[in-house]
């Protein structure tokens, strides 16, 4: 059996990749994708430790999270689309109408 610490290391690397993507990217779609990577990182933890502890709850969480991620992308794309229609861009740096 693989030592569970490997899964934690792997998931942390995924999380950091995702977080880097969220923080550094200027394109809203890429940010959404990065968030998906972060959710996947959490999913890996859940699956790995579900097997490790031999309880199913972790895998159930993964099913829910996958659904949530899909819903999130659906809403996200809808909002970004309406934004794109108005401004012809979804560059995050250009979202600056709301400032004091």
């Amino acid at each position: 059996m693989i030592d569970p610490i490997n899964f934690v290391v792997f998931s942390s690397i995924l999380l950091l990749i995702g977080a880097y993507g969220v923080i550094r990217n200027k394109n809203a779609i890429v940010v959404l994708m990065s968030v998906e990577i972060m959710l996947t990182a959490a999913n890996i933890n859940f699956v790995a430790f579900s097997t490790f502890y031999n309880v199913l709850s972790g895998q159930i969480v993964v099913l829910f999270v996958t659904t949530i991620a899909a819903a999130e992308v659906a809403i996200g794309l809808a909002i970004l689309l309406s934004l794109f229609k108005q401004r012809d861009t979804i560059e995050l740096d250009l979202l600056n109408r709301l400032r004091w």
Partner: peptide, 29 residues
């Protein structure tokens, strides 16, 4: 303004819920 606020709220909200979920997964671990 409404669309921009929605986009900001969505991106930050999604990011934050991913962070929460990762924290929960560590607790589960």
């Amino acid at each position: 303004k409404s669309a921009e606020a929605g986009a900001k709220y969505l991106l930050i909200g999604a990011f934050s819920s991913a962070l929460t979920l990762y924290g929960i997964s560590l607790l589960y671990a």
